[in-house]
Design a protein around this nucleic acid. Structure first.
Length: 346
DNA sequence: AGGATTTGACCCAC
DNA sequence: GTGGGTCAAATCCT
């Protein structure tokens, strides 16, 4: 096996690991004792990608002839990009892929007159980008696409497909860390399953316009398609907010940079300040029979404080957050500045 | 009693 | 006119 093939194989292995982790996330995040295995998985993924990247670097450095180096790196980058795009295509939304392709186009434009070292940098950027894509909360620029008009324009729509919980009640979508109040359900033409309409529990108190729609897939009843609209302007906690909501202009500003965390209390700090041993507890009070998957969203019950939902939130909610899901995980489970910087590039 | 879900009716864009 | 999104009264649960 030549070096390129080995590198591609490594990357594919990393993608598989990431895919495996992704499919297990809904269950893992609901069990505090599994957080360590999440951390281990992330470390393993980073190791694999790190090794792949070293191979790319060393390979390009070994080609001293400028022309052959240029061609070699370009070929390698092309194959890597194909792998990344395939992975993205399999795992993420079209919008994400569009964003990825757009970024690649910018990279290509920048490197059209590039030196071999520049090309290597663009390869780094491609590698960085996959982290950014994973970590960037699957946010879609509201100005990038024109949508069919709805009665009320609540802003961008972020779509996620989420597997049903493998344990507990598989009839409900997995927890996403926010508390939602169901306000409607409707049979949709051509769909076997009704669509559920939810809005943020804190809509009235904080004028939080976040909404979501949950639809089971016809061809895969164990998978939910969740569409999020609007951003959370409420406190990110699943419990009653502890601080007063920011003024409207502040809210507007916050929405530009983060989805739900208050400006004074970033998600990271909230998460890191948690004490699992004392804060994590079962869902007995006010649970709805969801079983082990229940974190906060309850039926007829009171919300249960549960720090794990912050992590779940980070993983399952899309939005315009800059401090978000996988980035949040990466930055808190590893000292690899690389992953962090990858996100900050955007 | 308070807060959540259910569900039929209504509104509105297409 | 149709279909999707929302409202709000009724009902349920703690």
């Amino acid at each position: 096996m030549d070096n390129i093939s080995e590198t591609i194989s490594l990357i594919r292995h990393g993608c598989n690991l990431a895919r495996e982790l992704e499919s297990n996330l809904p269950n893992l995040v609901n069990q505090p004792e599994n957080l360590f295995s999440i951390s281990k998985s992330l470390d393993q993924i980073m190791r694999v990608f790190g090794e792949a990247r070293e191979r790319v670097d060393s390979s390009s450095a070994a080609h001293q002839d400028p022309l052959s180096s240029y061609v070699h790196v370009a070929q390698q980058k092309q194959q890597i990009d194909a792998s990344l795009q395939e992975w993205l295509r399999c795992n993420y939304t079209q919008a994400m892929e569009d964003q990825y392709i757009q970024t690649q186009r910018l990279i290509a434009e920048r490197s059209s007159s590039a030196t071999p070292s520049d090309m290597r940098d663009s390869g780094d950027q491609a590698m960085d980008h996959i982290i950014t894509m994973v970590s960037h909360d699957m946010n879609v620029s509201s100005s990038s696409q024109s949508r069919p008009r709805r009665r009320k324009d609540l802003g961008e729509i972020r779509k996620l497909t989420v597997p049903a919980p493998r344990i507990g009640n598989t009839e409900i979508p997995p927890e996403d860390g926010f508390t939602w109040r169901k306000y409607g359900q409707k049979e949709i033409m051509g769909c076997r399953f009704p669509r559920g309409y939810y809005r943020c529990t804190h809509q009235k108190l904080y004028n939080c316009q976040a909404k979501k729609q949950v639809q089971r897939l016809d061809n895969d009843p164990l998978t939910f398609e969740v569409m999020y609209r609007g951003d959370h302007t409420c406190h990110m906690s699943s419990t009653a907010p502890s601080t007063l909501p920011p003024p409207p202009d502040q809210i507007k500003q916050d929405n530009m940079t983060q989805k739900h965390a208050p400006t004074t209390q970033p998600l990271e700090s909230t998460w890191l300040s948690m004490d699992f041993n004392t804060s994590v507890r079962g869902s007995s009070g006010g649970g709805d029979g969801v079983g082990t998957s229940t974190a906060t969203t309850t039926r007829y019950g009171k919300e249960v404080e549960f720090p794990v939902v912050d992590l779940a939130d980070a993983m399952f909610n899309s939005g315009s957050s800059s401090t978000n899901s996988m980035d949040f995980i990466f930055t808190n489970t590893s000292a690899e500045n690389k992953w962090e910087s990858g996100d900050k590039k955007n």
